[in-house]
Design a binder for these strands. Structure first.
Lengths: 194, 194
DNA sequence: CAAAAAAAATAAACTAGTTTAAGAAAAGCC
DNA sequence: GGCTTTTCTTAAACTAGTTTATTTTTTTTG
């Protein structure tokens, strides 16, 4: 089993000795996720948080009108779950599913808690991960308030070029909060101008 | 000095003995904040996190066009700071200022850290506070994507009736991401209909 | 590889929200 | 208490983004 990606990810923020690394990896389970398969469904409790070793997942919610709103796209080297549900162990309001054939390493809530007890440095690690999620969310909120659809799209391409390649436009539109038709129009307008 | 409000706030999530309570309150400093005075300015490092005992504060950012975008309003019994700046001790992107004459109890970053060492339960307390901030932010993002301006306003009144009373409409409009003119129009339309 | 299904493009009619400008009301201030 | 500044209202012209419908292209699947 190849843990190098996840170990490197951890070591970006904390320093583990090999014993701690081994303990950590012993808590992980590998899971293959088929395209369109769900890792978390609305109403279920998110039992795991997931680290992506290959592929692409999304976290989204469906509103009263049935419209999809995307909270997060995640690719290799990212952590994803329905954070609210995972952290509070209450039923999820959203879904997590696979946009592509994906491989994840999952960590259960109980193992996550044990990890904090045995290797307290992980408190710091996950605090940083969650802080970064908060900061990203806040920046996105400000962007949504301050930029036009075109500005948000340019921003998205610039910030996440890797997503722009692999994620269907329809979903990028949902992420940006516009209709796919309008995104299509923006793209053709931008192509015409350049 | 009356610490009952802040002690009650803490005891909603954790249980402290009186020694721990005393240690905690010994780390606090009381500060009076005049209307329009700043607690955090863009470019400065947020040295404190603030608990409001009286009054109303806001956290906001100014975009490239000079438009104000409000991240958070907070009244009595709420914690506020520029979280990104406070937690990472890096220069703030936003401001925190007073909408009314306000009194806060502030906790410095270094005392915040000491608190974790001496009373580890506070790790849990602030984890919950930050989790709740994350959840609120995410819900707001989804609301911004899924509701019309009118829906967001109704939602706002319903969720924060106390804010609707004390906060100028102009600022509510900034929070909702619409112009004050449009909010005024919405209000008169709503009044006409009911 | 062909058929079916899903995604993307185009375009016209429409609507939610902005902009600009001017006047009325309310709040802050010697 | 009156003067100044800020906030709120109203309304008309405008623009960004939606809706609906049709066609084309791409992807999926047997």
């Amino acid at each position: 089993m190849d843990f190098s990606l996840i170990i490197d990810n951890i070591n970006k923020h904390i320093s583990l000795n090999s014993e701690e690394q081994d303990y950590f990896t012993s808590l992980l389970e590998v899971q293959q996720v088929k395209r369109r398969a769900f890792l978390v469904r609305k109403g279920e409790i998110a039992r795991y948080t997931y680290f992506i070793t290959k592929g692409c997942l999304r976290n989204y919610e469906i509103d009263r009108e049935g419209t999809i709103h995307i909270g997060l796209f995640a690719v290799e080297d990212w952590w994803i779950s329905d954070l609210q549900s995972f952290l509070t162990q209450t039923p999820s309001f959203g879904f997590v599913d696979a946009i592509e054939e994906t491989e994840v390493m999952r960590l259960s809530k109980s193992n996550y808690e044990s990890l904090f007890e045995k290797v307290p440095q992980f408190e710091r690690f996950f605090r940083i991960i969650h802080q970064n999620a908060f900061i990203a969310l806040k920046n996105r909120l400000i962007d949504n308030l301050s930029l036009t659809a075109e500005g948000r799209y340019l921003n998205f391409i610039d910030k996440y070029p890797q997503f722009n390649q692999r994620i269907p436009q329809k979903q990028i539109a949902a992420y940006l909060g516009i209709t796919p038709e309008f995104l299509s129009m923006l793209r053709s307008r931008m192509a015409r101008r350049s």
